[in-house]
Design a protein around this nucleic acid. Structure first.
Lengths: 201, 201
DNA sequence: CGGTTATTTTGACAGTGTCAAGATTGAAAT
DNA sequence: ATTTCAATCTTGACACTGTCAAAATAACCG
């Protein structure tokens, strides 16, 4: 078995992934072309096609990588923490992840893959798992504090949507001020947590 | 003055806009090419360039149109209504707008224009005005109910981000169930409103 | 009518993703 | 070691895309 045995190039598969990621960071999805990528890797235009069926497949691989990072972050961050501060810290980390890797974030959640293209099974799995982890950990943190008739899954969906919406507005270039985003998210969390410490619905 | 005087085609400018909008609805942004558009309008490939400087300019014009609709909806919907129910109705309308015109919504808030391209001044104006209208009306509805140290602008930003995030998840094809989205948004509004009826922060 | 300007067309160029067919090379089989 | 075979890479080609330059056409204005 040739687990590390390489042919002509050596390790085109990983080289492509790596180079694609830096090219993504530098120029965004719209600047990421297979031909540019091949040139950077020092191979011909169609060489990548023996390692990725599609451009879509390559993008899915990139997004999968990024989701693995995000998933690790979620598990690390929400592992054990006091509810209010823990959540605040998590959101800060989430915002950091999104703003430091805007192009990756865009790829992870953007229509390029999910609507125009076709998400890989692998990608779907890790994406849904990430959210599930988030929902589970959040449910643990909020255990007993939720008012009646309030599903913790719904809270997870709503809170993710809020942070995701903020990230999107920032990343897409509609909002520019990153500090504002942080303030907004902190205040909305405080608001929700305040609501959760009350009995009525 | 030739305000309605037409040359060869008759009224290419409006025809292009109209045809572009239907093409956008049918095939999405990635299916909207100037050449296809020109063919549909019955003109040559480069004819549109005398009515729109760029593809970007055309897209901005489309987005501007859509923002005008959205702005009208905001002003109509949030004009006068009891706070809780009024907001719920508004959100339902917003979700309806986004899900019935997904491609337009994507164009309005997507990176195609705001990041990759360059938003027109006209577009920026109407976009920011729409949000300002929303924030103003919302501030009126919530007047006196906000706890101390809670800026109404922040609430407006947070609530928009939430609904926008939900729309994005739905439109980008990550969430599929529209009913879920509605449930989530309703419950998060209920939660926030519950928080707002309490004195402490 | 002549001239100016707005409008449209044809031709061209660089760039894209991707398929088909051939060339090269590593590894396994005899 | 030589053959066989499959993996890997290359060249060529096709249909697209946005956009520029220059030529052609047609409307308007004096």
């Amino acid at each position: 078995m040739t687990q590390t045995g390489r042919y002509h190039h050596g390790d085109l598969h990983d080289t492509l992934l790596q180079e694609a990621n830096t090219l993504l960071s530098e120029q965004g999805v719209e600047g990421l072309s297979l031909r540019k990528l091949a040139e950077r890797a020092g191979v011909s235009r169609t060489a990548p096609y023996h390692h990725f069926r599609d451009k879509n497949a390559l993008l899915c691989a990139l997004a999968t990588q990024a989701f693995q990072q995000l998933d690790e972050m979620i598990n690390r961050q929400l592992h054990q923490a006091g509810s209010q501060e823990g959540i605040q810290d998590f959101v800060r980390e989430y915002l950091r992840f999104a703003t430091e890797n805007p192009e990756q974030y865009e790829l992870m959640f953007g229509r390029t893959i999910w609507k125009s293209g076709e998400p890989t099974d692998e990608l779907k799995t890790i994406a849904y798992r990430s959210f599930r982890h988030y929902a589970e950990r959040l449910a643990t943190l909020l255990a007993g504090r939720l008012p009646a008739r309030t599903d913790s899954l719904r809270v997870a969906q709503a809170s993710w949507a809020t942070v995701h919406g903020l990230c999107r507005l920032l990343i897409d270039g509609i909002y520019v001020n990153r500090e504002d985003i942080e303030t907004v998210s902190e205040q909305s969390i405080a608001l929700i947590m305040a609501a959760l410490s009350q009995p009525s619905a």
